[in-house]
């Protein structure tokens, strides 16, 4: 037999023997070091969208799945997954889930660049978090700054700055709430959208009417005309606010009346366009 053949045979034999020995050791270790993992964690993780957006308050989907199974965290914290995801997790955990409306952000500012008074050229770092600490960037200290911290925070490319104002793309938005957490002025609120399009008060300015007039062509003056038309409005601190707990999308006539009465047109529809919705269907 030739040297070459013997060498090849020995090489193959070496690898074969190594493979057998190491496989045996690892097989033994697999049994000896077996870790019991709750199969529900895996199942919950599969039911979650896996976006790791952090909207539930945990670091990622994995941690939320563990919290649900081990610590009994609520099953409906996942906003991107929505009702279907909550139902699936509820199934796995054996708990009933109430039907809840999807939650979406509303930007409570309606002033575009031309509406804002006292806005100066700002040469600092172009983030809202930095600009909000600098006096004189714009007159209104409550409204949107337009430097796009919310845009940077959004993992779904669902919010953009249009003409200096944050504009939510409700077709892309899943309601994770990252924009609301990112906004240093807290003008983005997360509300239940019982229908695709709901009414909202688009202003956050809590100053009195005269002060609002001096900084904004569009802001809410706190005149309470809307509250006289409809009980759902409450006017505190010179700012009208719609209470969404009792908001009935099929019965908005009172609110529409209030919308017509509003001198500053601050009450507007937000959400998906119904026409587009029909076209898409």
């Amino acid at each position: 037999m030739s040297l070459t053949l013997v060498t090849i045979a020995l090489a193959a034999g070496t690898l074969l023997v190594m493979a057998l020995v190491l496989t045996y050791i690892l097989g033994w270790a697999n049994v000896a070091f077996h870790v019991e993992v709750d199969p529900r964690i895996e199942a919950v993780l599969d039911a979650l969208p896996g976006a790791n957006c952090g909207g539930c308050g945990m670091v990622g989907c994995g941690e939320y799945a563990e919290a649900v199974v081990n610590d009994g965290a609520p099953v409906d914290l996942c906003a991107p997954g929505g009702a279907s995801c909550a139902a699936a997790i509820g199934n796995i955990m054996g708990v009933e889930v109430e039907e809840t409306a999807p939650i979406r952000p509303i930007v409570h500012c309606g002033a575009y660049l031309e509406d804002r008074l006292g806005r100066n050229e700002y040469l600092g770092e172009k983030t809202c978090a930095a600009a909000t600490n600098v006096a004189g960037v714009q007159g209104c200290v409550y409204g949107c700054l337009g430097f796009g911290d919310c845009v940077a925070a959004c993992p779904y490319d669902a919010i953009h700055i249009r003409d200096g104002l944050s504009d939510v793309d409700y077709y892309k938005c899943v309601g994770c709430g990252a924009c609301a957490r990112a906004c240093p002025r807290n003008i983005i609120s997360i509300e239940p959208f019982k229908v695709d399009k709901i009414l909202a008060v688009l202003c956050s300015n809590k100053d009195d009417g005269k002060a609002v007039r001096s900084v904004c062509k569009a802001g809410c003056l706190g005149c309470k005309l809307c509250a006289k038309q409809c009980d759902l409005f409450s006017v505190d601190n010179n700012l009208s606010c719609l209470i969404y707990d009792d908001y009935d999308p099929d019965n908005v006539e009172d609110i529409l009346k209030a919308k017509e009465k509003c001198k500053r047109n601050r009450i507007e529809f937000v959400g998906k366009e119904e026409d587009d919705q029909n076209n898409n269907d």
Partner: peptide, 29 residues
């Protein structure tokens, strides 16, 4: 007969197996 040509494949073999072993061990304990 010189089988040192096998060195790389044999070492990678040994390393990956021992890493697998360590991973199981650490995960358990």
């Amino acid at each position: 007969i010189d089988l040192t040509i096998l060195s790389y494949i044999v070492y990678i073999f040994a390393i990956s197996s021992s890493v697998q072993f360590v991973e199981m061990y650490v995960r358990k304990f």
